[in-house]
Amino acid sequence: MGRYVVRRLLQVIPVVIGVTFIIFCLVFALPGDPIQALAGDKRADPNIAAILRDHYHLNEPLYQQYWHYISGVFTGDLGETYNGRAISDIVSQRFPVTLKLGLTSFAVEAVIGILAGILSALKRGKFLDNVVLVATLVLISIPVFVLGSVFQLEFGMNMKITPISGIEKGWPQSYILPAVVLASTSMAYIARLVRSSLTESIRADYVRTAIAKGLPRRRVIGLHAMRNSLIPVVTFLGFDLGALMGGAIITERVFNMPGIGGQLAQSVYLRERPVVVGLVTLLVLIYLVANLLVDLMYAVLDPRIRYE
């Protein structure tokens, strides 16, 4: 197991180099001049523009620019924006918001999704099951910005139990509403996933054995059936954790939250090459770690999977 983890961690290095290079090229290929973008609608002063171009190596060929960038990354310097702000500053300011939003959302979707799925599976074909099925279908079909706006109107304006937008009230008040909105779709998927996989394992022979052993129902379902149903759920959750950490551009916009997603969108628009590459690299790292965690969870959940 230890060797497996080390090998997986070593694999991160080539992945990071590859991903940063591809992103770098993609941003490079975008039309538009970042220095002109700094000046907005006015024409940029040619002298200042020349100095800036020189300072940010913009006149050098792509591979040299990439080399400047990647050697900085490996010495811990993520570079700076074209108006001189350190990118590490942006990350440390923006990332906590995304982290809090993402983790809250993750907790909501895992807890509510799994509970709803279990209820649904145990009451299969009954009223409660149908409620869950219809509710999840509705959640999957409603776009995030509609749900977000409706929630703001209901819970923020009419009932006044949560702030409408922004993060002034801090965690959890300001985060709970956007977290629920962000979680809604995945929550619905998880509920359905748990429902189908638990229904399947309840019919399995080993559950019949567990009943024949005279175990209480709680133990039969909660331990014998659930342990086996969790494997696909963990896969989905791990994948989703990475996605949530990537920032939710729409949710952040609707609730006016200064997270990674909004920053990334803005930086693409401004052709802030180092910012885009830096943020994407960070997201890739989070994805890789989430994936590794999922793979390690497999081994805990299913002893038939062994790593060498």
């Binding site: 399995a204 022979d205 024949a212 052993k213 005279g214 209480p216 331990l223 342990r227 959940l301 002893p303």
Partner: peptide, 24 residues
């Protein structure tokens, strides 16, 4: 339930599928 397993027990046909694969 209290009789099951304690006073009356059952042996099933296919032990591979009848034992829980994820518990020792």
């Amino acid at each position: 339930r209290k009789l099951r397993g304690a006073r009356i027990a059952m042996i099933f046909q296919d032990a591979l599928s009848s034992l829980n694969p994820v518990l020792s």
